[in-house]
Design a protein around this nucleic acid. Structure first.
Lengths: 106, 106
DNA sequence: ACTGGTATTCAGTATTACTAACTACTTTAA
DNA sequence: TTAAAGTAGTTAGTAATACTGAATACCAGT
């Protein structure tokens, strides 16, 4: 699916929060998970701007660990504020999603 | 629902296209329809920037008509390109929407 | 040595919704 | 007759977000 970037605004951060909530993970892996989901054109840079934002907004805990596959990884977990943000995200998604489907099906 | 503006990016234009596709309408009326849908915080200025963009991208026909309620109205209808854009929009919505719900329900 | 995969950072760009102010027409009330 | 409120459109500037593209760096295999 091409040119969905505008539609991803506001939802991509929610996806990242969701992936982190499922267990400690890091930027590069999150990128791959997003691609597997179907958002195939998402690149590392995009994900890192999101994780940096999560850091800045104090929604995540950070732990740097060495990797045997390359340079060290920055592992993220959600803190309490992050979990709240995630449920807030899904609430918003539910709301917008319902309204859009309502519009679509008259 | 508060602070959904980021999530509206990319979908608001689709809503406007959809409303226009249902019959000749104008900015002020579209704003009210969006509010009735549930996007209560959308203001006129936002909708006008969208209709101006639709004009610029040659997706609509324009007809100015006098109103007995106030200043003249700019009525829009979709042209062929506009209809294509609308089906493209719903395709993209369907795609993103499905992926998000897939993520949500594991 | 070189390539490719893994992993992060960052400056700059494009797009979009929003803010806030201005103009202007009509009706109704003070 | 003036003021306010509803209707209707335009525009300059702002904030937020995803994307681009380049740079750095670690490691494995050829």
């Amino acid at each position: 699916m091409e040119n969905i970037t505008e539609m991803l605004k506001g939802v991509l951060e929610g996806c990242v929060l969701e992936f982190i909530s499922r267990g400690e993970t890091y930027g590069y892996e999150i990128t791959q998970q997003l691609r597997e989901l179907g958002f195939t054109d998402v690149v590392e840079g995009t994900v890192y701007t999101i994780t940096m934002r999560l850091e800045k907004n104090n929604l995540v805990n950070i732990e740097k660990k060495p990797s045997n596959m390359g340079p060290p990884r920055k592992f993220y977990t959600l803190n309490e504020a992050g979990r709240e943000q995630l449920t807030l995200f899904w609430d918003k998604w539910e709301f917008v999603s319902n309204k859009m489907n309502e519009l679509k099906s008259n």
